[in-house]
Amino acid sequence: MLASTSGCGLLGGDEGDSAAQGNGQVEKAKIKVSVMPLIDVAPFHLANKKGYFKEEGLEVETVNSPSGQAGLTKLIAGDVDISYGGDIPFVMANATGSADIKFVAESSSGKPNTMMILTVPTSPVKNVQDLAGKKIAINGEKGVSDTLTKSVMKANNVDFSKVTWVTLPFPEIAGAISRGDVDAGFLVEPFITQASKSVGTVPVVDASSGPTQDFPISAYGATAKFVNENPKTVEAFQRAMARATKEAEADRKVVEPLLVEFAKIDADTAALASLTKFESKLDPARLQRVPDLMLEFGIITQKVDAAAMIAKQPQD
């Protein structure tokens, strides 16, 4: 999926204080947005490259983060204004009281073949039942990867209580599976396609199936303070993102060049990778699935109202 250019604004423009203070259209014209190297952020790069942010009066500086948690940390510290990240960490921050995060814009939900638990043919894991008591590589605990894996295992009546979770960055998971360091691993695209080509991985189970089909995966978040103080800035970001997201969802041909440019993957892999389901509208009922699943698996201890976390959305 997509990597951004760390610390580099793609739109250029005035680097002075005046841009940061607003321009008549928005309260804060120059904003920093943290993203990750994932397909999910393709619409963000599309909006930047096509000048949609600029049309809305925004100059966007792209900040690369290795994980959603790293982006969230930057957000809470005030190092960025908006951060792409997993829905689960955003909800977790609110539930634990570590931050008051608002969902600003939707990003993606899972669809078949975009999130898979994989292994190699020589692994003892042949099916979902074999995952019990095994070592499974994930990119972070109490996140999408282990939560969806647990959900799929539970749906298939498989005990996940004795699984050993091994945390690794997505690019390192295929190698760990191939060497036998782990029995299986959770990957997302384009790492799924890359792993198949490089080490011959085979699917064990689709993590976007059963109770987790169309599960909300990621979004863009900001602190409640930033949202309250900069409503026009937030709305400008939302409009640009919605415009680009609809384009990306309608035509994968606009996405593939972004994978090559920003993720530095080859064109063949970009063409083969299954694309995530880009989402342009935050839906309270759909988003409620996230805290409900977190509560089910003990990630949070009390019910969270997802609707209360959604920033005001632009009128259609």
Rank of each mutant, 00 (worst) to 15 (best):
G85R: 01
G85I: 11
G85P: 02
G85W: 01
G86L: 08
G86R: 06
D87M: 11
D87G: 14
I88T: 14
I88M: 13
P89A: 14
F90S: 14
V91C: 11
A93T: 03
N94G: 11
N94Q: 06
N94E: 08
T96H: 08
G97N: 11
G97L: 12
S98C: 06
A99F: 03
D100W: 02
D100I: 09
D100C: 08
D100Y: 03
I101H: 09
K102P: 04
V104Y: 00
A105S: 15
A105Y: 11
A105N: 07
E106T: 07
S107R: 11
S107Y: 09
S108A: 15
S108L: 05
S109M: 10
S109H: 14
S109I: 04
S109V: 05
K111C: 03
P112K: 05
P112S: 04
P112A: 03
P112L: 01
N113G: 04
M115L: 15
M116F: 04
M116V: 07
M116L: 15
I117L: 06
I117E: 00
I117C: 13
L118E: 01
T119C: 12
T119P: 10
V120G: 00
V120T: 10
V120M: 02
P121F: 13
P121L: 07
P121M: 09
S123D: 02
S123E: 00
P124F: 00
P124H: 01
P124M: 02
